[in-house]
Amino acid sequence: MRLRANYFSALFVAFMVIVTYAPIILVAALSFNDFPYFVVNIRGFTTKWYFDIAARTDLLDAIKISVTLGLCTAALATTFGAAMAYALVRRDFVFKKYITFSAAIPLLMPLLLLGIGIQLFMSLLGVGPGWWPLLAGHVLYTTPFTLLFMLTRILGLDPSLEAAARDLGANTVQTFAWVILPNIVWSLFGSFMLAFLLSFNELTLALFLAGPRQTLPLVIYAMMKVGIPPALLAFTTLMIVSTMLVAIGITATLAKIKR
C-alpha cells in the first residue's frame, strides 16, 4: 500500500513495541539486581539468584513433567494438525463442514470451560485428574493452532506435484515421503515448536486436569500466590530467553517457507 511515511504512526509503533517488551525485559533485568524483592530498587549486579534455582527442586521436577507433556502434546498436535490441514485442502468428504467447525471449537471455547468440561467428563468415567486428561486437553487446545499453521503451507502447495508423482507410479507412502514431506518439513517443525511452547506454558487447563504431578506453570503459580522470590525471577528469565530462541526459530522457519 502506498502511504506517506508518518512520524506519528512510527511513534505509535515504537510505543507498542516498547510496551510489549518492557515487562519482559524488566523481569530479566531485575533478576540480576542484588536486592531480594521484586521492586525497581537497583542495588548492584549479581548472579547469585541463578544459583538459588539449583535448590528449588520443585521447579526442576516440574520441568521434567512439563517437557514430557510438551513433547507428547507437540507430536500429537502436529500430526493431527497436518493431517487435518491436508485433508481439508486436498480431499472432499462427507460432513466436511461439520468436521471443520468442530476442529475450530477449542479455539472459540475458553480454556476455563474446556478444562472443567474435561474434568467433569473424566469424573463421570471414574478417571481422576492426571496425565491422560491433561494430555487430551493440551492436544485439543494446541491442534487448532498447528492446523492453522499447516494450512498456510499446504494451501500454497501445488497439487500437480502430487498428481505428477502418482502418474509416475509412486504409491501413497512414496508420494508422501518424497513429494509432500520435503515441502512441509519446515512447517511441521514450526508447528511442533509452537505446540510445545503453548503446552509448556499452559496454566488454566493444568489447574483442572494436572492432578498430583504438578506442571511447571502450576508450581510457579503456587509460588506467585505467596510471594515472588528472586530465584523465580532468575528462573523466569531463563524461560524467557529459551522461549525467545525458539520463537526466533519459528520466525526463521516462516521466512524459509516464504522463500
Partner: peptide, 15 residues
C-alpha cells in the same frame, strides 16, 4: 509474548 504464557506476562506487569 503470546508464546511466553500468562504467568510470565503477569509477573512482568507486577514489576
Amino acid at each position: 509474548p503470546f508464546l511466553l504464557g500468562g504467568l510470565v506476562r503477569a509477573l512482568g506487569w507486577v514489576g
